[in-house]
Amino acid sequence: MSVDLSIIVPLKNEEANLSNLWARLEPVVRSLGLGFEVLLINDGSTDRTLARALEMAQAIPELKIIDLSRNFGKEAALACGFSHARGAAVVSMDGDLQHPPEMLPEMVARWREGYEMVYAVRRSREYQGLLDRAFTRAFYWLFEHLSAVKLPPEAGDFRLLDRKVVDALNALPERNRFMKGMYAWVGFRTLGIPFTVEHRSGGTSSFSPLKKLGFAFDALTAFSNLPLRVWSVVGAGISLAAFLYIVVRIIRVMVYGLDVPGYESLLAVMLFLGGMQLLSLGILGDYLARVFEEAKGRPLYVVRERFGFTEDKQKRATRRVRKVA
């Protein structure tokens, strides 16, 4: 059967949500009248997510499961799903039901109108705390002003992609991936449609504040080299200020005979410059670490096993025939 629509769902400890997810997703997808597949990417879950998914797959032939060898992160899990999806259109969505499946008919309708990327736009972030909202606004403000790639406001990973977009994403070679930036970078004809983010159906998010901070820094350095270039401006400004200060001190000594201030001012200047140097070296080191990671050429993810894929069944059957022979 041909696959018109592939749905990618990364999973990390979502055992409590799988049944509710399928209960809401199945009637919506079947009502579209399209051949479909649902790819569940188990990204190193430590609960019974994989076991529950396998139980469901026994009665649902459209379910396909990819079990990664460990937790590689959501960006890698999405990349894995895109590389395995066969549909003419591919939808990525979370497994905690914060992305309502009932949005899919409108997404598909817009895709049929000719839009090659249809992304869902949050109406609000009331589901987040004040601190999370402030951090998110600060990140998007920085990204907008530091990067040449412009992100659609309030757009996330809940989106439908045409096959052309998926092929373009699969062709991008980098390992340190910020998918929202990559969606914007590849371009194509896009459209945003509003939706209301729901509360999690069950479980708790594994995206800690520390992970969010690291993810934000990775995103900024992946799509902007301004943090590197800005230190040339900072260095030039500090050098100019230091030169003007020296000129002023020389003039004051020559005209008024005033002594140069003592070691306190010298110590303050040295500490300031030392801090600036360490900060700039840290940013430079982060970019160098990215180059090191890319140069090693390690795969973005490692698949432990796949379930529900026809080619895997054919390979296992071939191995059994060879053993018998």
Rank of each mutant, 00 (worst) to 15 (best):
F217D: 05
H84G: 00
S206K: 08
W185N: 15
L146G: 05
G35L: 04
Y140M: 07
A16L: 15
P10E: 01
L210T: 09
V255C: 08
R24E: 12
G44Y: 04
M56S: 00
L266F: 11
A85S: 12
E113L: 09
D286V: 07
M276W: 14
F223P: 00
G203R: 00
M270Q: 08
N170W: 14
L226H: 07
R30T: 11
L63C: 10
A53V: 09
V9P: 01
L266A: 15
G308W: 01
G35A: 10
R252T: 10
N20Q: 10
L146S: 07
R175Q: 09
G87L: 00
E144Q: 12
P153Y: 11
G275F: 11
T310D: 15
A295C: 04
A184Y: 03
G44P: 07
R306M: 12
L54E: 15
K323Q: 09
V9T: 06
P227V: 06
E15V: 08
K164W: 02
A148Q: 11
D43M: 15
V3R: 09
K180A: 11
I251G: 02
L32H: 07
D96Y: 05
L213A: 14
L210I: 06
V118W: 02
N176Q: 13
R316L: 15
L160Y: 05
V269T: 09
F82D: 04
N71L: 02
V91R: 00
A268N: 14
L18M: 02
F292M: 13
I246G: 08
R306I: 03
N225I: 05
R320M: 15
L40C: 07
C80N: 05
A16I: 02
S265L: 13
A120S: 07
V321C: 05
F215W: 15
W141V: 10
E116N: 02
D132A: 13
E55K: 05
S232D: 08
S201G: 13
M56E: 03
E102K: 10
A138Q: 14
L258W: 12
M93P: 03
D43R: 14
S124P: 01
D167F: 03
L32S: 08
L146K: 13
D259W: 02
L240N: 02
E55N: 05
T190R: 12
L40I: 12
L25P: 03
F72V: 02
W185E: 11
S124Y: 07
M117C: 13
R316S: 10
A88D: 13
D96V: 03
E14G: 08
I65P: 12
D286P: 00
V260E: 00
V255D: 06
L142V: 07
L32K: 13
T190I: 01
A77R: 15
F207Q: 10
G282N: 07
V28T: 09
E264N: 10
A219E: 06
L40W: 08
D218L: 14
F215T: 08
R298P: 00
E62W: 13
D47C: 06
P10G: 00
L160I: 10
R30H: 01
E126M: 09
M107N: 01
L18Q: 02
V260K: 00
L240R: 05
L267I: 06
N170M: 07
A23C: 04
I283H: 10
L213F: 13
